Simulated scan of single mutants.
Amino acid sequence: MSGAVREAAPRRPDLRQLRDDSHIGLLLGRIVPGAFPPLLTALTVALVAGTLLVADGGQLTGITLFAPVASLLLSGLVSGHPHDGRFDWLVPPVLRVTEYGFLTVLGLASGVPGPLVFVLLVAVVLHHRDDVTRPAVGMVRPGWVRAAALGWDGRLLVVAVGGALESLTAAYGLLAAYLVALLVRESVRTWSATPVTDLRDDHNDRGGVNASST
Results as ranks from 00 to 15, higher is better:
80 G>Q: 03
60 L>A: 12
84 D>F: 00
55 A>D: 00
57 G>W: 08
110 S>F: 05
105 V>M: 01
52 L>P: 01
65 L>R: 06
60 L>F: 03
74 L>A: 11
86 R>E: 07
109 A>Q: 14
65 L>I: 09
67 A>Y: 03
107 G>I: 08
62 G>I: 09
66 F>S: 14
67 A>H: 03
109 A>L: 08
98 T>I: 09
65 L>A: 10
52 L>K: 04
104 T>N: 00
53 L>M: 08
98 T>G: 06
113 P>L: 07
63 I>G: 02
86 R>P: 00
97 V>I: 15
101 G>T: 03
114 G>F: 12
95 L>G: 12
52 L>H: 01
63 I>A: 14
73 L>A: 12
71 S>N: 12
60 L>M: 06
71 S>R: 12
48 V>R: 04
79 S>C: 08
100 Y>L: 14
50 G>M: 04
80 G>P: 04
81 H>T: 04
104 T>W: 11
66 F>V: 12
91 V>T: 08
107 G>N: 03
106 L>N: 02
77 L>A: 15
81 H>N: 13
54 V>G: 00
80 G>F: 04
83 H>E: 12
110 S>V: 10
112 V>S: 09
109 A>E: 13
112 V>Q: 05
78 V>S: 13
75 S>H: 15
91 V>S: 07
73 L>S: 06
61 T>D: 11
112 V>G: 10
70 A>D: 07
100 Y>I: 15
54 V>N: 02
92 P>W: 06
102 F>P: 04
101 G>I: 07
83 H>M: 13
76 G>K: 02
48 V>A: 14
50 G>I: 08
69 V>D: 00
49 A>F: 09
99 E>W: 05
92 P>L: 09
46 A>P: 07
98 T>V: 08
98 T>C: 11
99 E>Q: 08
95 L>T: 06
50 G>Q: 09
65 L>W: 04
89 W>K: 07
105 V>T: 11
95 L>V: 03
104 T>G: 00
65 L>Y: 01
91 V>D: 04
90 L>C: 11
46 A>T: 10
84 D>N: 14
90 L>H: 08
110 S>R: 06
67 A>F: 02
95 L>I: 05
77 L>Q: 14
104 T>C: 01
61 T>F: 09
111 G>I: 10
68 P>L: 07
60 L>K: 02
88 D>V: 06
87 F>G: 01
108 L>D: 01
60 L>R: 06
77 L>S: 15
104 T>R: 04
116 L>V: 11
92 P>D: 11
106 L>Q: 01
53 L>F: 02
103 L>K: 03
48 V>E: 05
78 V>W: 11
82 P>G: 08
59 Q>P: 00
116 L>M: 13
102 F>Q: 06
96 R>A: 14
65 L>H: 03
90 L>M: 13
112 V>R: 07
87 F>I: 12
47 L>R: 13
88 D>I: 10
116 L>I: 08
67 A>G: 05
72 L>D: 06
107 G>L: 10
51 T>V: 15
116 L>E: 12
47 L>T: 15
91 V>W: 08
68 P>Q: 03
102 F>C: 03
115 P>K: 04
108 L>E: 01
74 L>G: 05
70 A>I: 08
50 G>A: 10
94 V>G: 06
104 T>F: 13
114 G>C: 00
84 D>A: 15
48 V>K: 05
48 V>T: 14
82 P>H: 07
47 L>S: 14
54 V>S: 10
105 V>E: 00
78 V>R: 12
79 S>E: 02
77 L>D: 01
70 A>M: 11
